[in-house]
């Protein structure tokens, strides 16, 4: 088991197999999203209160979920890199940041557009859910700026991993903000205490989109990490051999 894990985490091996794993995630991911988007827009019944505006949920919830998921992957990978000095873990953390930032932006933007007609406001500065999600975006920016600021990769890895771990507190705040404080944002739907508070016809396309977005994210993360590994290993022998090999492929 450990041997297999170490082999998987070895840069040349990871570089070779990442595209295969990436494709394996991408295809079902796209299929799920295709079903989720179509069913969410046209098959799911409209909501008894929000009418068709509720359909924004099909892109808002997956991106909001990924904004936190990506952060946790970044922080945990950073932590693994700090503790076990695993090179691949730092490459994963560095690659998760820009993806996470994009999904955080998407969650904020779609939430804002949804809030205008339903709640009557684009944005509320005093709202805990909205503010903590915005802070999440700042943490991603801070993380990437910190990395960009430190030339020494090993030092950048350590400093940014510490920052990422500190920011986990904020992710917890994002998650519980709707319970701890009074927010315009409603509470948990899918993870509600008595089971999902949603019609099955609405729920299945949503679950499909959540899984689909996650698979797509996984596919992007694998390929981003692969490029990061290539860059970090640019002076090593295996990269030189690969590039000079007659059948060298990108």
């Amino acid at each position: 088991m450990w041997k297999w894990f170490h082999q998987l985490a070895s840069p040349p091996h990871f570089y070779r197999i990442a595209p295969i794993f990436s494709a394996v995630l991408l295809l079902p991911g796209l299929a799920l999203i295709a079903y989720g988007v179509y069913a969410g827009l046209f098959l799911a019944p409209m909501d008894y209160q929000q009418g068709d505006a509720f359909r924004i949920i099909y892109v808002h919830v997956p991106s909001a979920y990924l904004s936190m998921m990506a952060y946790m992957i970044m922080a945990v990978a950073g932590g693994i890199g700090l503790i076990w000095r695993m090179k691949l873990a730092h490459a994963v953390a560095a690659s998760a940041a820009p993806l996470g930032a994009w999904f955080t932006f998407l969650a904020l933007a779609t939430g804002s557009i949804w809030g205008r007609p339903m709640w009557g406001t684009w944005w509320e500065w005093a709202d805990p859910r909205m503010m903590s999600e915005l802070i999440l975006l700042f943490f991603y920016f801070g993380y990437m700026a910190l990395r960009a600021a430190i030339d020494d990769t090993a030092k950048a890895d350590k400093a940014s991993a510490v920052l990422a771990l500190v920011g986990v507190v904020n992710v917890i705040i994002v998650h519980y903000s709707v319970e701890w404080w009074s927010s315009l944002h409603q509470g948990q739907t899918i993870m509600a205490k008595d089971g999902p508070a949603m019609d099955p016809g609405m729920l299945y396309p949503l679950l499909a989109n959540i899984f689909g977005f996650t698979l797509l994210f996984g596919s992007l993360l694998l390929r981003r990490t692969r490029t990061e590994v290539l860059f970090r290993e640019r002076r090593t022998r295996w990269v030189k051999e690969m590039i000079l090999a007659p059948e060298g492929q990108s």
């Binding site: 827009l41 924004i56 779609t110 797509l216």
Partner: peptide, 30 residues
């Protein structure tokens, strides 16, 4: 979309844009 077309389609358009941008950026960087 029962009068909410602008809001709904803007959100789905944004989501598609973000996914496409990320796919493109990953390929371009590699």
């Amino acid at each position: 979309m029962g009068g909410y077309g602008t809001y709904v389609w803007t959100c789905f358009g944004l989501a598609a844009a973000v996914l496409i941008i990320n796919e493109w950026r990953v390929r371009a960087r590699q």
